[in-house]
Design a protein around this nucleic acid. Sequence first.
RNA 1: GGCCCCAUCGUCUAGUGGCCCAGGACAUCACUCUUUCAAGGUGAAGACACGGGUUCGAUUCCCGUUGGGGCCGCCA
Length: 526
Amino acid sequence: MRVRVAPSPTGAMHLGLARTALYNWLFCRAQGGRFVLRIDDTDAGRNLDESLEPILRGLRWLGIEWNEGPGVGGPHAPYFQSQRAERHAAVVELLLERGAAYLDYATAEETRAEREQAIAEKRSTRYSRRWMGDTEARRRQFEAEGRKPVVRLRMPESGTLVLDDLVRGRVEFDWSLEQDHVVRRADGSCLYHLASIVDDHDMDISHIIRAEEHLSNTPRQVFIARALGWALPKFCHLPYVAEPGSKNKLSKRKLEQYARNRDFAELVAIGRKVAPALGLVPDAPALNPVSIEFYELTGFVPAALVNYLALLGWALDDRTEHFERDELARAFTLDRVNRAPASFDPGRLLAFQTRHMLGLAVEARVELVLPFLVRAGLAGEPAGDAERHRVGAILEAAGDRVKVGADILDYRGFFTSDDRLEYDEAAFRKRLLKPGVAELLARFRERLAAQQRFDAASHEDTLNRFVVEAGIKVGDVIHALRVAVTGKAVGFGVFETLAILGRDSSLARIDRALAMAREAGSEDTR
RNA sequence: GGCCCCAUCGUCUAGUGGCCCAGGACAUCACUCUUUCAAGGUGAAGACACGGGUUCGAUUCCCGUUGGGGCCGCCA
């Protein structure tokens, strides 16, 4: 059993390609086959490396390893379609010899005009074969006119093609409706559809698992294979991934539009948050949630994306949702793949991410999160044990508030010096400038300072006693305390916060906040 | 326009003739817990596109309609 995924190097690895690759890989792993990565760069430009790199990187990040292909080689090398041109040309000659293809002398303009007229007259757009060079005399005549021939497939004029698609079941095509597709250009280069089926045959691919948009293209490929007497691979056409809340295909050409789309808002916000730390502009293409790169850059767990993508069009049963990579590889079967397109749902992806994130050991989460602190200049490189320990404590206290790696930046206040902590203005005003609060906080500060131990349990104990003695409620002082030490109105438990900051920092921050409150207060009364 | 594919809650899905006045999950809402924000707990609302058949019985089978999508390139 051999499968392949054959992306064209477009410069970005997007969600749809990732899922197609994943399904191929899962099927391959479940069946114990070989996974081939082939690059369909038929008319690639000069910077192949640049446009290929994101795809290779994306696949590796997702843990989709290939047995044969770029970087690893294999018995069917080369794995770049552009390097197999001679073979494709030879196959075209073979097709010509067998009468399965013919030289056609129509110019591109003539073909187009014919097609447009056919559409205008609501006729079939099938080529008329008017410029077909089917006899020596005609060929000579056309060539005397200075025409250069392309090669077209000579499609059957009757009969039915019955395909047994692995997810769609029986699909029929009427041969007489199929176009005489061009397989070789006037300049001698070959077209994708020919190259694709030739390479699949040469690479001994047994299952072609690809996106639905190729279903209509299958007859011409079957025609080529049959004309050459090749055994047909099994075909399997996967539904495409649709835009959130719609059935439109997720398109890599609409990236900018998605960035403004409400459904993507949560993800886009994460991108905006990391952008400065990564030295990127907020709307950088790499931070577009339709590309896999986004998830690597913002600190997703690859297994979470794999889990989500696997379930976008496939389900094992009516309740199993959480899968690790190897569990999927064991359970995956093509017959449980859905036939209808599935919309990408950022919210659901985030839910999978949260679950996978929390499933990680703290040490693993520390490793995931650390690069963001380093890049933001908030942690040393490499981070020391003490730093790792501190980050671990923050992660444990934060729980599922840190959903993706980049979320650690919400807690940057822990990594800035006490005299540079930034205060949220509204929070400060509301919690620290409230009458009487500063005085209570100052009194509580002395209790804290007097504590023997400086851990969360002690803080809680101290506060509870203080509240009783002062005849107040916890809420009367704790909010001011949070703002004083973190600069923000929201965050995880205050007692844990104080413990992580330590005695010196905690007291210094409270003192600074009190001084600022005093200043603001005197300005008000002036 | 031609051909092909598809159709269960907002979303992902379970369902292969009776177990389904349709189950789970995400999202939503309410209540609860609570030191904020999350999380948690409890609960609510929410779908078989429509019309014909077939059948004792259709979400499930067939036909049609409607809707959505893909392909129809000397792009991949």
